[in-house]
């Protein structure tokens, strides 16, 4: 049976019984379901009004869980969120962006999820509704491993919460082709600048570890750096938190070695200009 609740309460009530499959855009759900037994109950969240939309309140951007990537790409957002919008443009194809949702991307917890590095660099938190009410936790805590999250039975990701602020974001993806690729490696950065120097930096790397990682040591080193310093700083960055693997898309060597270059470029892009069309 498929349920299409129109309120969060109704959705949560449906979730009270175990065994339900949650569905928003469906772009990851259907391929996984196809060859198994039909689920007893599926819950389509796309009609829950509270789950869709982007709004700024009290210094926090709230992106509803069922907000599509197209919604994000089209939204008028500050330069700080430019990396998220650029990442959105590279989620699959536009057909996928029209259906796929931001919560779906994080709940699927693929190491190569396009949205995750950008959200991490923005210090995003995950808002979760459950039988006990609302709870919020940082995205990096929410993501526990490949295909593993902290989501408990009966819970629904209702929103991503992103602190507003100054600065500019950027996103870069290394792949076999220009578009429609699953990433070999991807980087998102957010930098704040004062007098030509970085005053604050956030850098996250995806597809090079089980869960995307922030490069905190490098972030600290970037503070005070000018554009000219970036390549050298990134070249000797401590990447020990990353654990790139060899798979059909690339070798661990290549992933590991390409990262410093991509990080430098992403940071420089963020320093130069917002680039969202």
């Amino acid at each position: 049976m498929l349920y299409r609740p129109e309120s969060l309460d109704a959705a949560l009530a449906l979730m009270a019984e175990p065994g339900a499959v949650l569905l928003a855009g469906g772009t990851d759900v259907y391929p996984a379901l196809r060859d198994g037994m039909p689920p007893d109950r599926m819950i389509d969240l796309t009609r829950v009004a509270d789950l869709r939309g982007i709004a700024l309140a009290d210094g926090t951007w709230r992106i509803g869980g069922a907000t599509t990537w197209t919604d994000i790409v089209k939204a008028e957002l500050p330069p700080r969120l430019a990396g998220l919008q650029l990442a959105g443009r590279e989620v699959g194809s536009i057909q996928i962006q029209n259906a796929g949702t931001v919560a779906g991307n994080i709940c699927n917890a693929s190491p190569a999820a396009d949205g995750v590095p950008a959200l991490m660099a923005l210090d995003a938190a995950v808002e979760i509704a459950g039988p006990e009410g609302l709870r919020t936790l940082p995205l990096h805590t929410f993501l526990k491993g490949p295909r593993q999250t902290d989501l408990q039975p009966g819970e629904i990701v209702t929103a991503l919460l992103i602190p507003d602020g100054p600065g500019r974001g950027a996103f870069l993806k290394l792949g076999a082709r220009k578009y429609l690729v699953i990433s070999i490696a991807m980087i998102s950065a957010v930098v704040e600048i004062g007098a030509g120097k970085i005053t604050n930096a956030a850098v996250a790397v995806g597809a090079c570890s089980p869960v995307a990682r922030r490069l905190t040591a490098l972030e600290a080193q970037l503070t005070g750096a000018t554009a000219a310093d970036i390549p050298a700083l990134c070249a000797k960055a401590d990447l020990s938190d990353l654990s790139p693997i060899t798979d059909v898309r690339a070798s661990a060597d290549y992933r590991g070695e390409a990262v410093p270059t991509l990080v430098a470029r992403t940071v420089l892009t963020a320093m130069e200009a917002p680039h969202v069309a």
Partner: peptide, 28 residues
Amino acid sequence: DRGQCGACTVLVNGQRVNSCLTLAATLD
């Protein structure tokens, strides 16, 4: 049949989607 080639593209409510990844049940 996995949303990666686009041959099944149709418009749903005016937006293009891959019909192979769209569950009919959600289209009421």
